[in-house]
Computed example of a mutant assay.
Amino acid sequence: MSLRPLPDPPSPEWAPIVESIRKQYNEGLPFFNRALLQRVALQIHLYENGMLTNKPYAIENIRGDLVSLDIDPDTESPVFKDVRCNHGDRKNGPYIYYRSIQSMLTHRDMKQFDAEKAFLPLVVMFPSAAGRCHAHHVHESRSTSADDLQASILPTTFYPSELTTIFNLDRRAWEQSEQYAYLKGQLEAHSDRLSQIDSVVALGCGSLAHGRARCQFATTQHALAFSLRKVLSRMHPENSRVRQSLRQARKKEPVDLVVRGVLQDPAYTEVDEAVLSDMGMEIYKDPFGFLEMNDNSFVVSIDVNTPAQQIIENLARPAAIIRMTHVEELNGENVAQCTDPSSSRVNKMLLEEYDLVKLRYHEHLRHICLYIKKQKPEGKAGSNRASGSSSTKN
């Protein structure tokens, strides 16, 4: 399926640039690679520590050119605009704005034409209006005058102990659901392909609460990640029946959580991070969660507010992926407003390299599906995904 038609070009130079971008994408050039993400992360770190105050960011575009990008916390970018909804994932800056192939081809996120910057797959930005954000899917309840009086006395956010209790209730509800039982059965049925998984990487699961209102979409996604870690650890060779018996004899938990739990979401609050890290999960800042993905990871990426599907396709071939079910008019490659759209390369990867397992609808996960990597023929070497410069094909 071809990409949506381009809008009227802003300048005569635009058409050949678009065709160049399209050509490089169709040839398989990784627009997001590990070296690029590491370089940008380092520059953000230097800026946050006061060591990059008077120098522009240097970001490599897909042609291999280093592009200077000046950013100012008090001034909006003169070239780029972040067209996404703000779900709290850019409370402050600088932050990374990832450009999907759709944005690069239609230039809908550019305020003015700039031939050099048009080839950038990502940019560093500050929020255009700090604090202006909204959250979808927040669990709300009707309030009474007594509730309002109590709210005026209580703090504006949950204490970590409160949020831990709330999350554990939703976690228990998920693990008692028929949807989880069905998923668990499917994982066990494919244990031969999942037993070597070493990490569950969950991307953009959302903040557990907004103020003193919990978000059940976020708590259920995190509950899914926790349950995957437990089930996959039980399958791992380090948790053989003999080892489980030895652990029980020593009065330890029968299953050692050998599978790591990795979380990344710029929307996390300090309370979120405290709750989740105390429960054994590893919290990574953007882009380090992406960099933790490898071919033995199980990636959870459900309705993310960034082009995660395209980033995953560039960086790794995870052992398994849970994502939104593909619906062309919702998250297909021709949908203008989707923040995590598919693409021809994503579709090709999933079709040729993965087996699809349909999962059951859950009101707080909606229509999701499981992709399990196909077994490679013996003797066939694995691929080396996007580890070097974006100017070098992999």
Score class of each variant (00 low, 15 high):
R84Q: 15
G88F: 02
S77A: 06
L66Q: 11
Y98M: 05
I44G: 02
R108D: 14
H45S: 12
S103E: 12
K55R: 12
I44S: 05
K55A: 14
Y57F: 10
Y98A: 09
D70A: 14
F32G: 07
H45K: 11
Y95E: 14
G28D: 04
Y25G: 07
Y25D: 06
F32I: 06
D65G: 00
R63Y: 00
I44Y: 01
F113Q: 07
K117D: 05
S20V: 02
C85R: 14
Q43P: 05
S77G: 08
G93M: 06
E60W: 00
R108F: 11
H107M: 13
I71R: 04
I59T: 03
V18H: 04
S20A: 11
K81Y: 13
M110Y: 01
I59H: 03
P30R: 02
T106E: 09
Q38P: 07
D72M: 10
V67Q: 01
S20E: 08
I101A: 07
G28C: 01
Y57H: 07
I101Y: 01
Q112V: 13
D65I: 00
L52T: 12
E76D: 15
E76A: 13
R90F: 01
R22I: 05
Y95N: 09
V67H: 02
R63I: 03
R108L: 06
M51P: 10
P16S: 06
D72A: 12
G50E: 15
R39P: 11
Y95S: 15
M104K: 00
E60P: 01
E48F: 02
P94H: 11
D114C: 07
R63S: 07
G88S: 13
S100Q: 04
E19P: 04
G88Q: 10
Y25A: 07
H87G: 15
K91L: 14
